[in-house]
Amino acid sequence: MLCTLLMGWMVTWLGRYMARYFKQLWQNQDGAVSVDWVVLTAMIVGLIAAAFSGVEGGVAALTTKLMEYLQNLTVGV
Rank of each mutant, 00 (worst) to 15 (best):
K23D: 14
G58W: 04
Q27Y: 05
M10F: 08
D30F: 08
G15C: 02
S53R: 10
Q24T: 06
T41A: 15
V11I: 15
G57V: 08
M1R: 03
A19Y: 03
I48M: 13
S34Q: 15
C3Y: 04
R20D: 13
V38T: 09
L14P: 00
M7D: 12
I44N: 03
G54R: 07
W26T: 01
V75Q: 05
S53T: 07
A60E: 09
L47F: 15
A42V: 02
W26G: 01
V77Y: 12
A19C: 04
Q24W: 14
Y17N: 05
N72E: 14
T12K: 04
G76R: 07
G46I: 03
Q71P: 00
L66N: 11
T12H: 03
L25R: 03
G31T: 06
Q71F: 04
R16V: 10
A49C: 07
I48T: 06
K23L: 14
M1H: 05
R20K: 14
A42F: 10
Q24A: 15
E56F: 09
N28T: 03
W9V: 12
L62V: 02
L2E: 14
M7W: 06
T41L: 15
A60Y: 04
V77N: 10
V11R: 05
G57F: 03
A50E: 02
L73R: 09
M67E: 15
A61L: 08
W13Y: 09
W37T: 03
M7Y: 06
R16L: 14
Y69R: 09
R16S: 07
V38C: 07
L6N: 06
Y69W: 13
G57D: 11
V59C: 00
V77T: 07
Q29E: 13
W9C: 10
I44Q: 02
L73S: 06
L47G: 11
S34A: 15
S34K: 14
M43C: 08
A32G: 02
G54V: 01
I48E: 10
M67G: 03
Y17H: 07
M43G: 07
T4V: 09
G15A: 09
L40Y: 12
T63S: 11
A51N: 04
T41R: 11
K23R: 12
V59M: 04
A32H: 05
W37Y: 15
L2M: 08
L5I: 09
Y17C: 06
L40H: 07
N72C: 03
I44M: 13
G46L: 13
R20P: 00
V39M: 07
F52T: 01
G58T: 01
G8W: 04
G57K: 12
L47Q: 08
E56K: 10
T4R: 05
W9Y: 12
V59N: 01
F52S: 02
S53K: 05
Q71N: 10
L70C: 02
T64P: 00
V39I: 13
V35F: 13
L2R: 02
M43N: 09
Q27R: 11
G8D: 11
M1A: 13
V59D: 00
T41Y: 15
T41V: 08
E56P: 00
M43P: 00
M7R: 04
V45F: 13
A50Q: 04
G58Y: 01
V38W: 12
L2I: 03
G15L: 11
C3G: 06
